[in-house]
Write a protein that binds this DNA or RNA. Structure first.
Length: 424
RNA sequence: GGAGAGGUGGCCGAGUUGGUCGAAGGCGCACGCCUGGAAAGUGUGUAAACGCCACAAGCGUUUCGUGGGUUCGAAUCCCACCUUCUCCGCCA
């Protein structure tokens, strides 16, 4: 969430930036938080003054008791009764207001960075660069959901039987390909200085709030009622929450973590051809990279994360392009996001395979992730994360783009991991 | 799952007949003295959030696992929950 202080001090600028993000009720929301915050401070002042009084009297009573002047002490006791009632009232009011301010702040998205392009929807995203050679497939090229059936490597129907739609079963070379990609991505990240983390796949409520899945996206997560735990929609949640309520030393920064995990998403409300095959799943595998940085370094870090993702796609010999998301298409919590899209030749469309974002201090503020800077002053850290990479659409693109009459060719660098060079 | 014992500041560790306790002492850390330099020694300082205020100094409030309660006053008493350790049970 945004810092209330920032909103207080740069109100006009904040509103203008929220508008770039096409946040509908910018003025009203900001006005509401500021009013609540004013009320909150006023109430705290009143309460503090009152408590100062009662604390004083309490101390006096203590001293009187020690001196054995019981009657005088009893007199003072009477005096505190009215203070007590009043301060209890004020305390309730303050708690209420504090909650209100935070609740309201939760509903206000992060501010976009200056270089974020203007725009409302996906078509307005800016194509920053394009790499790789577009494949030239014959007319009868198959989409991946046909290929997986033909080579018996992914069984969607079987998954439906065991669990439900969107939970595929990987078999034989398909399973092996999954494992190869996971190891390949992890090794690449480790080589780039990321510490490998194996996080829990379930998180508690506090963690879901920490990274912003709650309160607004709770319908996207699977929830275990009995224990009140959530299945993670991405490793970002457990990994970033490692640093919740943490005060880091400046020497600890930057922190670079990588985690492989299965991800679970309810994807409520998505149907149709866009979700066929591997395009959208309830359970899938992803390797996530997370960085925690000093503010002045966070945008350089974002670039380095993009370079890392590029190196993966280059190694897999996939054609891809990089988009800078426009204000209206960005995520709620992001300040700047680059999407990586791989071209899927048989589906004749671009598939999003990675999203790399700088959240600046938005997540850190909610999580109270801070560090002591060179002057010993407390600062909010900046958090960043990105997929490097998510498997399903990479697999889809590999299968479709590399299909030949003989079988599906595996890119050279990946062969060391799969142990085979062609799927037949 | 059952029984018992704990959870105090960056760490260790006092404090539980409620009363100037944000909390002794030690370690660590920072700065200074000492030294040719260092070690040792020695002195001072060393939590966070929020509020008033100039995001200064200063002052105030809150915080001793979390949340409630009793009380004029709670680290200290009561209740619930979380969590750690030991023993028993069960088990990949």
């Amino acid at each position: 969430m945004l810092q209330i202080q920032t909103i207080r001090e740069n109100t006009a600028e904040v509103i203008q930036k929220l508008k770039k993000k096409h946040f509908k009720q910018a003025e009203e929301s900001i006005e509401t938080v500021l009013n609540l915050d004013n009320l909150r401070r006023q109430t705290q002042k009143e309460l503090d003054d009152m408590l100062t009084e009662t604390n004083k009297i309490s101390k006096e009573i203590g001293i009187l008791f020690q001196q054995g002047k019981k009657e005088l002490a009893d007199e003072l006791k009477v005096k505190t009764v009215q203070f007590k009632e009043k301060s209890k009232e004020l305390n309730l009011k303050l708690d209420e207001l504090e909650k209100d301010v935070i609740q309201k702040l939760y509903t206000i998205p992060n501010l976009p960075a200056d270089i974020v392009p203007q725009g409302l929807r996906a078509e307005d995203n800016e194509v920053v660069a394009q790499f790789g050679t577009m494949p030239n497939l014959p007319e009868d090229a198959l989409p991946h959901w046909e290929l997986t059936k033909k080579y018996e490597i992914i069984d969607f129907e079987l998954g439906t039987k065991i669990t439900g739609a969107g939970f595929p079963v990987y078999k034989g070379q398909g399973a092996r390909l999954q494992r190869a990609l996971i190891n390949f991505f992890l090794d690449k990240a480790a080589a780039n200085g990321y510490l490998e983390i194996q996080p829990p796949l379930m998180v508690n409520e506090a963690s879901a709030y920490g990274t912003g899945q709650l309160p607004d996206k709770d319908a996207q997560m699977y929830h275990v009622d009995l224990d009140n735990l959530y299945l993670i929609p991405t490793a970002e949640v457990p990994v970033t929450n490692i640093y919740r309520d943490v005060i880091l030393n400046i020497n600890d920064l930057p922190i670079k973590n990588v985690a492989y995990s299965s991800c679970f998403r309810r994807e409520a409300g998505s149907y149709g051809k866009d979700v066929r095959g591997l395009n959208r799943l309830h359970q899938f595998d992803k390797i996530e990279i997370v960085q925690i940085q000093e503010p002045q370094n966070s945008y350089a870090a974002l670039e380095s994360m993009c370079a890392h993702v590029r190196s993966l796609l280059d190694a897999l010999e996939l054609p891809y392009r990089i988009l800078r998301l426009c204000g209206g298409d960005m995520g709620f919590t992001s300040a700047l996001t680059y999407d990586f899209e791989v071209y899927s030749a048989a589906q004749k469309r671009w598939l999003e395979v990675s999203s790399v974002s700088n959240f600046e201090s938005y997540q850190a503020n909610r999580m109270k992730l801070r560090y002591r800077d060179a002057n010993g002053k407390m600062q909010l850290a900046h958090t960043l994360n990105g997929s490097a990479l998510a498997l399903p659409r990479i697999v889809a693109a590999l299968l479709e783009n590399n299909q030949t009459a003989e079988g599906i060719c595996i890119p050279k660098e990946l062969q060391a991991y799969t142990g085979f060079s062609i799927i037949q």
